[in-house]
Nucleic acid binder design. Structure first.
Lengths: 242, 242
DNA sequence: TATAAGAAGTCTTATACAAGACTAGTTCAT
DNA sequence: ATGAACTAGTCTTGTATAAGACTTCTTATA
């Protein structure tokens, strides 16, 4: 009855079309981090929708953390700085809630075959992954030992970029247009076994926190798996539930 | 120059007025949990704004978790069920991500003077608090020992409501119109001392997870402090970062 | 039991105007 | 001549409104 027009009628609302367009442009690198987006009016004219519809799309993107907006200034692709990345995805805090600056003490990277679970959970079912092992020191005696895994297909040439900085997510965005917007974590308390105790420089059997994280980008792709072993006596891991 | 009209010109936008009106009605109990709100059109007419403005307010309230909306059905005050409360604020998950049902094994409540930090951080700077100690069992050998603290002024007569159910937040809402919408948590790994080991029924020195939580209601009041000691070998604590 | 019409709700889109931010002049004092 | 301060203009996002489409549920009817 209503399929009179076999034409270009998409079954999704117009603002969703606008959202998808912008997300594609950011993910493809056409819109670089920090770049200014077209204004609501321009964007609407460009895509054949009203300013209000373009606006609704931009607000949605802002809430998803992909862009930042300011009245009178414009809309900009959110730029991942070391500060913002640490603030959002490195949740260790000092006693007074202040944010410590982790110091990279050791780091090594290699390419290896993906494990079964990595192939199953990471984007594109990768056969090969880059594995980054590193040790980070916090003020005082606290330490973090991390094992990071990313698909080689998503981050080609990552191995040649060594030494990698403290905040990997900045590299993901700036070099690969991959913006991490969400991460799911599983935490469990643990007694340090021999290997991790040695890596962390603590006694075997000490209580540590193990965190398994899967990070997702703007396209909702699982782009990274990461396991952290945290020895925290003077710091706590802070999160907000909603 | 512009205060020609000493009248009813609030310096906040109209949609904010609508938001505050609804929040007040919910917090005062005029709108009970599960109750249907006026439609966008009705609400707009009632408060002298357009349907679109009322709609903007309702969408904001939905995102804050205060109401639930469904096209064609209407808008309803979010009802805290044992399931939703556990899903949102009890983050322990089994190996497969399935949600365990904790079993209340022991519980006791008493009224006592508030500690300095409780007076400082909780709403209304209470002098007296109710303290609830309880032990919850998970499938397998995992256990949770909790110490919950709430101001007596906010929850008068809570002591007479014993035995309290598994999910306190349902009681807060149904009996006191206090909807917990957010919680901030600090986690740290710990070796169980003698007292907590006894409470949890484990050996002293075993690794446990300590979580200090402050819960906030719809009015952004700190309504509860809670410390949990978690013995988790077969479960993990799952959160999402953004 | 199935179907259709209607009522009541939210959802989408468009338009008008207000308010903030930046720029380019212009003015005025030095 | 130079520099600071003001101002008008223009570009941006923010707020408010209205009209019609779409969804869900109920009720009447075959």
């Amino acid at each position: 009855m209503q399929d009179q027009t076999p034409s270009i009628k998409p079954d999704r609302p117009l603002y969703q079309v606008v959202i998808d367009t912008i997300v594609d442009r950011i993910a493809s690198g056409a819109l670089q981090p920090g770049a200014m987006l077209p204004s609501e009016t321009q964007l609407g004219a460009e895509l054949g929708v009203s300013q209000g519809t373009a606006r609704k799309a931009l607000i949605d993107l802002e809430q998803r953390g992909l862009v930042q907006r300011a009245q009178g200034r414009g809309t900009f692709v959110r730029i991942q700085t070391p500060e913002s990345a640490l603030f959002n995805f490195f949740r260790l805090r000092g006693r007074d809630g202040d944010r410590p600056t982790p110091v990279l003490q050791h780091q090594e990277m290699r390419q290896r075959a993906a494990t079964e679970i990595e192939t199953k959970t990471l984007h594109n079912a990768p056969k090969q992954v880059f594995e980054i092992k590193r040790l980070r020191a916090l003020p005082g005696k606290d330490r973090v030992h991390e094992i990071v895994c990313v698909p080689c297909t998503l981050f080609p040439g990552l191995k040649d970029r060594a030494p990698l900085p403290n905040t990997l997510y900045v590299v993901y965005q700036q070099a690969y247009s991959c913006i991490v917007v969400r991460a799911e974590e599983q935490m469990r308390p643990l007694a340090a076994d021999a290997a991790t105790a040695r890596a962390l420089g603590i006694a075997q059997g000490e209580s540590i926190l193990r965190i398994d994280r899967v990070a997702y980008d703007a396209l909702d792709r699982a782009v990274e798996r990461r396991t952290s072993f945290i020895h925290a006596t003077e710091h706590s891991y802070d999160v907000t539930l909603r």
